[in-house]
Design a binder for these strands. Structure first.
Lengths: 225, 225
DNA sequence: CGTCTTCTTGAATTCCTTCAATACATGTGG
DNA sequence: CCACATGTATTGAAGGAATTCAAGAAGACG
């Protein structure tokens, strides 16, 4: 869970030529909910820039349970870490809803990277940000109660995807299982704790819709043990 | 816990001039056990290259408990993330034993970075590695039992700092509280589970000395739930 | 030698997981 | 449109894992 500030790709740093190169060599692909963009363990051939929709990045453990490590939103760059490090993908990516993606071959990405020293500074900045979030996370995950982590996830979802027009309903709908994968707990526990947060007036649920009712309260809970 | 492959600084990538610059401008400082190199939340003025000794990097939560996020060994670069990202330190660093450190002012570090495009590639690679470990970790932390995580920590300590001459006693001595901070659990739990691992013949303890007796067994445990 | 820290153990409790059963929803093919 | 299969959500009950508190033992250190 919890990578609040995703990696919005800085097209503005590209020269017109590079931007054109990217658009010529890149292909737009569309994925439906549940379709997978790439798979953990495979060698990467491309990087992916999310144009429209929502994507979850996750690992699957031996018991077949998903742990979501990142949520991507439009503008986000995905798969660049495996490409840069010349490693296999460290996680899988799947669309949460109908999604369109600009797929850039590895070679083109490197070519553009070579032309743009500022872009590589940007990537470093990106990595440090992600790493800081991962560490913050790490520190919390080990010690916080599931209840606090659930509050944190609710806030993360708001921060990442925003709200519906009513200003309080999260603009993303996840299954209980997906929420569980984000929090790092069992589905049943998510259900019970969502009820508990509802009883405390912190949020409301209607099927997969979640309304945040008391953000300061959720923040306090998320900060606490 | 668990950042197995630290950031060994690649002096070999530096030009002789840059290496000299680093040695002229950098200062060697010595720290005793428990002395702090830098503090979470402060603005960084320097980066640190560990020359001799052992250092823990950790965050402190509201209840005053330490969560260790990284263990550094000679050759490791520390504090570069805050410097690169122009952020406050995201964690504190303290010596685990008598330690000497080469302290490089921020400006000098940047100057050297500018001269060396390969060095910035190297840094990117470093960051991707750290991030991969952090994610691996994240996926495990949320779901694994403390017992498994303790086994993982034992193996991590071996990997990071190696063994005494006997080939099985860990070459690092931590308090139970520090081990707890590494595992992400309570001190009492560490004590109980160390006994449990001893009863299963996986390791032996003698005060703060830990001997690994059955590495495949520990690996199996660490992999398991 | 006494003080302070660290370590250890026991007991009670809380939190969470797991299993099992049921309800609800969704979608598909007939 | 219904019937059925499948996937998702919910609830209860039992058990297990880990935390917390409290108290005492052992060790380190001046």
């Amino acid at each position: 869970m919890f990578m609040p500030h995703p990696a919005a790709f800085p097209f503005e740093l590209l020269s017109p030529a590079d931007e054109q190169l990217m658009n010529n060599e890149g292909k737009v692909e569309v994925f439906q909910r549940r379709e997978e963009l790439f798979l953990e363990g495979k060698q990467p051939a491309c990087v992916y820039i999310l144009q429209r929709g929502k994507v979850k990045l996750f690992t699957t453990d031996m018991q077949g349970r998903e742990q979501i490590v990142h949520l991507a939103r439009p503008g986000d760059l995905m798969g660049y870490r495996a490409v840069l490090g010349n490693d296999a993908f460290s996680c899988s990516a799947a669309a949460l809803e109908t999604t369109s993606v600009l797929v850039i071959p590895k070679a083109v990405f490197f070519q553009i990277l070579d032309h743009n020293p500022t872009l590589s500074h940007y990537i470093i900045k990106l990595l440090t940000t992600e790493l800081r979030h991962a560490e913050h996370h790490l520190a919390g995950l080990a010690r916080k109660h599931v209840r606090s982590r659930l509050a944190e996830v609710a806030l993360l979802l708001a921060e990442t995807y925003g709200y519906e027009k009513d200003g309080s309903t999260l603009a993303v709908q996840l299954t209980r299982e997906e929420v569980a994968g984000l929090v790092g707990t069992a589905t049943e526990t998510v259900i019970r704790l969502l009820h508990s947060l509802r009883d405390d007036g912190l949020l409301a649920t209607d099927g997969r819709k979640i309304r945040l009712l008391d953000i300061p309260g959720l923040q306090r809970l998320a900060e606490s043990n």
